[in-house]
Simulated scan of single mutants.
Amino acid sequence: MEIASDSHGNNGFPVRNKRVSLDIKGNRTDILMCTYDDYILVMVTQIGCMGTIVHARKEADVTVDPTFNVSVVFGKRDEPLLIACARQLIEHISSCGSSKPLVLSLGLKDHSPGVLKDVIAAVIEHRAW
């Protein structure tokens, strides 16, 4: 259930961005997506702060069967599902024709597969790239 949605183009904040608030598994989830010239920033929080920050990018020289580099920049390094979430999002971004890397911040109360699946679906549905 979507609570609120707000999108900005060139008016106001100069970076293309989109904000969405929705309920995921009983928790209010705020999503902010910004598309900069050189990367995409996605922040997802249920705790009111940034949480674990993951960087994901497509390897530049690979044209057939692309590979992706995903690493934790800050936060929980022992959460493989957070890495998988970032990998799925960068694969989707790449399949949409963008070569921009992704910086993903996940401040979630629950890191279960169901929650992360819903987060991925919400980001893709409301994407700002």
Rank of each mutant, 00 (worst) to 15 (best):
D37R: 05
N17H: 12
I31A: 01
Y39N: 11
V44A: 08
T29N: 10
G26T: 04
S5A: 12
D30A: 12
I40W: 01
S21Y: 00
M50L: 05
K25R: 04
I47E: 12
L22H: 10
V42N: 04
M33K: 05
D37K: 06
N11V: 02
K18F: 10
G12N: 11
R28T: 14
T29A: 07
C49F: 09
V20K: 09
M33W: 01
N11W: 07
D6L: 14
A4V: 11
S5E: 05
E2G: 12
Y39I: 01
T52C: 05
D30S: 14
L41S: 13
T45W: 06
K25S: 06
C34N: 14
L41V: 07
G12Q: 13
H8C: 14
D37F: 15
Y39T: 01
G26Q: 10
K25Q: 02
V44N: 14
M50C: 03
M33S: 02
N17Y: 13
C34D: 06
F13W: 13
V20W: 04
D30W: 03
M43E: 10
M43H: 01
F13R: 08
K18M: 03
I40E: 04
V15F: 02
C49Y: 15
Y39F: 07
V42E: 03
I24H: 13
L41M: 11
K25P: 01
S21H: 00
R28N: 08
K18V: 00
A4M: 11
I31V: 08
R19H: 10
M33D: 00
G51W: 01
Y36W: 08
D23C: 05
G48H: 08
T35E: 10
N10H: 12
R28Y: 11
R16P: 04
C49A: 08
L22M: 14
G26I: 03
V42Y: 06
M50I: 02
G12I: 07
D37E: 15
G51D: 02
D23K: 15
G9Q: 10
P14F: 10
T45E: 04
I47S: 08
V44Q: 02
A4F: 13
I47R: 15
R19Y: 13
M43G: 05
Y36G: 00
A4Y: 14
Y36M: 11
G51H: 08
L41F: 08
M43C: 09
G12A: 15
H8A: 15
N17M: 12
I3D: 03
N11K: 12
I47T: 12
S21N: 10
Q46C: 03
G51Q: 00
M50A: 12
M43W: 00
N17R: 01
G51V: 04
K18L: 07
N11E: 15
K25L: 13
M43Y: 02
N27E: 05
C34R: 12
Y36L: 05
C49T: 03
K25E: 06
L22I: 02
T29G: 05
N17P: 11
R28Q: 14
N10S: 13
R19F: 10
L41W: 09
R28V: 12
D38L: 00
P14Q: 09
N17C: 07
N17A: 14
D38A: 00
N10D: 15
D37T: 05
V20F: 10
G51F: 05
G48P: 01
L41K: 01
N10Q: 11
